[in-house]
């Protein structure tokens, strides 16, 4: 699969959009998931994801090996930061419009088994908690804890050092823990043990 991916990347470099689209199909759920959890808004997440893939195609000649998904996410993360900066300047999206995607499955949306595990209020609450983190901590948490990236890959995707990833992740987790403690009535048993 890695070899096949390299071949697809090489063909994309030559301008073969069909080859690139196979890579898009492979990674779009992951990229979209990260972008959505960074932005908390479905339409904006779609636009930013699309932009990120277009940028990636136009810049694929600059991909210098390593983890392709980390490279893609770096582009997507930059697009998210730009979008968040844009949103701060023109705050048309207020926080209460932020949607929970996992909480509102669409008609025709077929839930995978793990989506049955976590849905509705709980997913909504977690996404709300993520939304309260500073952007860089949020990205570290989304990459490492939600997407399961290693510290190394997260560092590559954020162009930062391992130490930076560790400390962002640590602070982000601690903040989320405090957030969950404030909402322990909605959470599974552990958070209810102590009042």
């Amino acid at each position: 699969m890695a070899e096949e991916e390299e071949a697809l990347i090489a063909r994309s470099r030559g301008g073969d959009v069909n080859a690139f689209n196979l890579l898009v199909e492979r990674y779009q759920r992951m990229v979209y998931s990260v972008v959505f959890r960074m932005l908390g808004h479905r339409q904006e997440a779609e636009d930013v994801t699309q932009e990120a893939f277009l940028s990636a195609f136009q810049g694929v000649a600059r991909f210098r090996g390593g983890s392709f998904r980390a490279w893609l996410l770096r582009i997507a993360a930059n697009a998210c930061y730009d979008h968040l900066r844009f949103r701060r300047r023109r705050p048309t999206v207020s926080l209460d419009v932020l949607e929970s995607e996992s909480g509102n499955p669409l008609p025709g949306h077929i839930a995978s088994p793990e989506e049955h595990v976590l849905r509705g209020e709980l997913a909504r609450l977690i996404e709300e908690g993520l939304g309260q983190l500073p952007e860089e901590q949020r990205l570290a948490v989304v990459l490492c804890d939600v997407q399961g990236f290693s510290y190394e890959e997260a560092a590559e995707a954020t162009r930062s050092s391992l130490g930076t990833v560790k400390s962002r992740l640590s602070r982000g987790r601690a903040r989320l823990r405090d957030f969950f403690k404030e909402h322990r009535e909605l959470l599974p048993s552990l958070y209810r043990h102590r009042t």
Partner: peptide, 16 residues
Amino acid sequence: LLRQLPPLTPRRSFTL
């Protein structure tokens, strides 16, 4: 809890 957040399925494809 974070690990249980499911991957999302976008409403559309992002192929170019």
